[in-house]
Simulated scan of single mutants.
Amino acid sequence: MLNMMKYALYYHDKGFSVLPIEPRSKKPAIQFANKPSLTKEEIIKLWKQNPSYNIAIRTTDHFVIDIDTIDHGKDGFKSFQALKQQFGDALFPPTLEVRTGSGGLHLWYKKKEGYPNKQLIAWRDGIDLKAHINNYTLVPPSVSSNGKQYGWIKREIAEAPKGLFSLLKASEKQSNSNYKKLNYANSSNKNWTGRLLDELTEKHYKGARNDTIASLTGKLLITGASIDAIYSLLLNVNNNFVDETGNKAPLPLKEVNRTIQSIIEGRVRAIEQGH
């Protein structure tokens, strides 16, 4: 059996901010957002409690270009090739790389004076940028849910070229610009239906998952939509729940079904009682 504590301490000694992750998952085993890095003593205690914990590193002094396979819905490798064709291979110099258990790729680059420091979800199709201090990525020898290990491809973190920083800054500005225009265009004369549509598509957080599903179920029942349509919309909402780090954190399907069923049954009883 792999000595995961040994690896966690190795990363700590290299100056990385280490996180324990639930075995064969990407779910953090502790609350860590906006908290200091774990000490050596804390790492030993945590991995003694569960020697099978996976290991993640927070993106404090480095950032990660996270490239997904087509199995995740978008072909990040195709998008990455398009980026290199458009801007040149020099924009992405050889660096420390991690091959994920699902076949994806993490490219690590050093931050410059703390930049970049934001997360860009869907920076390109199938490509995310992990750069916020509360972002993290798993590292070898962590094991994915399919039983496959993460693995190193190179072992030195490269300096990111100025051109990459410029591209990221331009992407941030474009993202902010689009958001402001969209927000302005829809800020007036919004009716109940418009507010409901906003709720169905906006980001919701892990801590209020059950309440959110229950509330939206009730509101959707008022519209008179079919149960099938309501269920489909709520599955989409569930798939977009995130934790404090921005990582997806949906409820188990069984829990979603239980919550929806409870609200529907309550509505039926109210109708039968003439309310």
Rank of each mutant, 00 (worst) to 15 (best):
Y10L: 11
D13M: 14
P20G: 12
P20K: 07
P23L: 07
A33Y: 06
K35F: 00
L38H: 01
I44A: 08
N54V: 08
T59S: 09
D66P: 00
D68R: 04
D68T: 03
D75L: 04
G88H: 03
A90Q: 08
L91R: 02
L91Y: 00
T95W: 03
E97W: 00
G103M: 04
L107T: 00
E113N: 10
A122G: 07
D128G: 02
K130H: 02
N135Q: 01
V139H: 01
P141K: 05
P141S: 10
I157C: 07
A158D: 06
E159P: 06
K162H: 06
S166E: 13
S171C: 06
E172P: 04
E172G: 00
K173N: 11
S175A: 13
N178F: 07
Y184H: 15
A185V: 09
G194Q: 09
D198H: 11
K206A: 13
L216H: 02
T217K: 01
G218V: 03
K219C: 04
L221T: 07
I222H: 07
T223S: 08
G224S: 06
G224W: 04
A225V: 03
N238D: 14
N240R: 15
G246W: 03
K248I: 13
P250I: 06
P250L: 05
T259V: 15
I260R: 08
A270P: 00
I271Y: 08
E272M: 14
Q273N: 12
Q273A: 13
